[in-house]
Structures are given as structure tokens and as C-alpha cells.
Simulated scan of single mutants.
Amino acid sequence: MFPIRDHNPSGKTPYVTFALIVINVLVFLGYVSMDDWDLQRFFMTWGLVPARFTSGAGLETLFTSMFLHGGFLHLGGNMLFLWIYGDNLEEEMGHVGFLVFYLACGVAAGLAQALPDPASPIPMVGASGAIAGVMGGYLLMFPRAKVDVLFIFIIFFRIFAIPAWVVLGLWLAIQIFSGVSTPSDVGGVAYWAHVGGFVAGLVLTLPAWLRRGGQGYWQRTEGHPPHPETHFEASRSNVPLIRRRR
């Protein structure tokens, strides 16, 4: 299940969203050719290592870690989510406001991952905590904006347009469940960073939502984007379905 686009067009050029994507890609290309040993040292230096951070060292890694990624799929997935949700929040918050919001969500995500297990020696890297904040803000501003989600069922696929509150709410539920069920000493996905970033995004978007009238804004827009949405024709698989004979 992959969100691939939303029906929420932006009326302004999202310069900060573009810049963040470019910076993340360029940083990744700068170290992707390192051998495993050098890459491990690089992540230990610039990634957020809870044991080092909570001892008072490496405070800058709260910021540097959110521009590092563990592989092409990690980078590509994060940049896709930033592209889908970032432009609309940037339009609502302004370029500078959105940049401050993005970095603040990334910091909150790092703290949410580091503080519950302050002795962990595992470095955290990735923009997903900051992007989770963008998703939280998007949920508050446009809960009923349609998001096209690609479902892959083994031999066929189908794109469904689903309200943002369903897509993002399901995503958040998966992060919470996975965070609770995954031992803290196991490396992998930083689920609590996702949850912390998402909650921070909700909270930090509240002022923008309240300035527009809060629940009155939802009533005026019915949770949809405050402008005409983009319409796409859903794609179907060309692979025929063969039903079992009885």
C-alpha cells in the first residue's frame, strides 16, 4: 500500500519543499559510495546516537541526522511523502514558516526516539520524523483531501482515492503498534520518531488552523482543500483476473 499523490493542488511554488528534496538527494549521493566501514563511522558521527546525545555530545546531530538516509528506498520513500504532503503546508505556512516547522518536527522526532532509550548505541538517520510532522499538519488542515493509494495484490494493482484522515490515521496506528511491539534494542525503523514527529506536526499546525477559524474552517471546507481539487482517473491493472472454476 503506497500513497502516490494527493488531489490537493498548490497555488504557489513550494521552493522549500523542492530545496529539502534536493539537499537530501545531494547529501545521500555524497556518501553512498562509501564502503561499509566508512559508512558506519559516518552514521555514528552524524547520525543521532541516543547514548552520545544524552551524555551532552553530538547535539548538532538532532539536525544532521534528518538529512541522512540508509539506502535508495529509504530516501525515495521519504522524498515521495514529502512531495505529496509538503507543498500544501508550505502554501499555508509560508516558506520560512514551513522550514522552521519542518526542522522543529525533525527535532521533536529525534527526541521522541532518543529519550525513551537514552543508552542506545544505535544511530538514527532519516527525514521520516520531520516528514511525519508534515503529515500530522496535513491531517489537521485537510482531513478529507483525497489521497491516491496504490494497492498491490500479488498479480494486479489498483489505485484508490482515500480521504487523508484514513490514510494518515492508519499510518499513525501502524507506527504506534510497531513501536510498542518492537524491542528498543533492535535496530530498524524508528517508530517512536515517527509518532513524535506526527504529534509535533499536529501541535505546531494548531496556530495556523485556529487563525482560519478552527472548527469553523472545517465546517466551511468540510475538511476538503479550500480550493478545487485535482481530478485523476484511477488506474486499473491490465492483468486479467482468472476466476477458479468449480
Results as ranks from 00 to 15, higher is better:
M1V: 04
D6I: 02
H7T: 07
H7A: 06
T13R: 14
T13C: 11
P14L: 02
Y15Q: 08
Y15A: 15
T17M: 05
T17P: 08
F18V: 05
I21R: 03
I23N: 13
L29H: 12
G30L: 04
Y31I: 03
V32F: 13
S33M: 13
D35R: 08
W37V: 12
W37M: 14
L39E: 01
L39C: 08
R41F: 06
F42C: 10
G47N: 08
V49E: 03
A51R: 14
G56C: 14
E60F: 11
T61Y: 01
L62H: 06
F63P: 09
F63L: 15
S65F: 04
S65C: 09
M66H: 02
M66G: 05
H69A: 11
G70V: 00
G71W: 07
L75Q: 01
N78R: 13
M79T: 04
L80T: 03
Y85E: 01
Y85D: 00
Y85V: 01
N88K: 09
E91W: 00
G97H: 10
F98N: 04
F98C: 02
V100E: 12
Y102L: 12
L111N: 08
L111H: 06
L111G: 04
A112C: 09
P116R: 03
P116C: 04
P116Y: 01
D117N: 13
P118K: 03
A119G: 13
S120E: 00
S120H: 01
S120R: 03
M124I: 02
M124T: 00
A127Q: 12
S128H: 07
G129I: 01
A130R: 02
I131K: 04
V134C: 09
L139W: 01
M141H: 05
M141N: 09
A145V: 03
D148V: 03
V149M: 05
F157I: 03
F157T: 03
R158Q: 11
I159T: 09
A161Q: 09
A161M: 07
I162N: 03
V166D: 05
V167Y: 00
L170M: 14
W171N: 10
L172V: 05
I174C: 11
I176K: 12
S178A: 15
S178W: 02
T182M: 05
D185W: 07
V186T: 11
G187E: 08
G187Y: 05
G188D: 06
Y191K: 00
W192Y: 08
A193G: 15
A193S: 10
A200P: 07
L202E: 06
L202C: 08
L206I: 14
A208E: 13
G214H: 11
W218G: 01
E222Y: 09
A234P: 12
A234Q: 15
A234C: 10
S235M: 15
S235D: 12
N238L: 13
N238W: 13
L241V: 13
R244D: 07
R244T: 02
R244W: 06
R246L: 12
